[in-house]
Design a protein around this nucleic acid. Sequence first.
DNA 1: TATTGTTATACTCTATAACTATA
DNA 2: TATAGTTATAGAGTATAACAATA
Lengths: 157, 157
Amino acid sequence: MTKDTTLEGLDLPERDAIIGYKLRRAQLVVFQDFLQTFGEMKLRPAEFSVLSMIARQPGLKQTDIAEALGIKRANFVSLMDGLEERGLADRRKGDVDRRSHSLHLTDKGQRFVREMVEVWNSHENRMIERLGGVAERDRLIELLDRLLAGQDVADGD
Amino acid sequence: MTKDTTLEGLDLPERDAIIGYKLRRAQLVVFQDFLQTFGEMKLRPAEFSVLSMIARQPGLKQTDIAEALGIKRANFVSLMDGLEERGLADRRKGDVDRRSHSLHLTDKGQRFVREMVEVWNSHENRMIERLGGVAERDRLIELLDRLLAGQDVADGD
DNA sequence: TATTGTTATACTCTATAACTATA
DNA sequence: TATAGTTATAGAGTATAACAATA
């Protein structure tokens, strides 16, 4: 009993083995957990990345941070506006190059980042646990790095 | 020489070990390759999934396919409109339940799917090669499945 | 002339509410 | 009353072009 002979013998891709499909679903699940975990703090993944980066290397200019995170500098403006309006970070006019803005955390921002890191640990540990431990996490990261290697990574501009 | 003593001793997350961040970047790279590979055929990932599913199980109704792929049925309409306008698939009024539409490939759609699968193989094989072979691909899929397990998968509705 | 930050804008994805026709 | 498909709409995320200030 054949139903569609025209596609007879065609090896259709199995959805559950497609790399891109699985990657997307897994990413959505992880981001969903992130959003739920940070719901109360009203923090989005991109804001998390920006605050982490400013905390690590205060004084970098907008363009550097945007580019490092793969965010167009045009879109970075409103993101940074939000962090500034919430009193978490601020822009300071560069004294050497007065076109550029160097980014810093405020005192409130530093306290916020402390709490953020704690909350983040709970999220990340949950993901690690789901993977089966840090060794499995490392294996995953290594495999993902292979996909990223040599490929252009959709830069900030 | 300490520069920001308020964050002293704080274990900031390392961007290159963050699961969600790496997942997103890897997914973007894979999708970018997909889009480039299918640029000439003008096929998006969602359309690819829908055509694959109709080819595999012709006659399913819209809602079933949308839900299975995590697409809201409201958003599925225009997607399906596109496939229909291109003459690749069509909706047929269900004869038992006349509210529902069962989905089928046209003859042109069947030929298109044959070509699509070939092109897809070139894309997927490139990703597998980048990972280091099918065994590594399987390891990746297995790890991603662990992230997906037990978690609600953002269904179609 | 080139670069930094900015504004305006547009396009894709995704999400919700409400309608219609059937059941 | 509930369901399948549809419409309209709104919100994120992301992309490009063009401008002012500065280099």
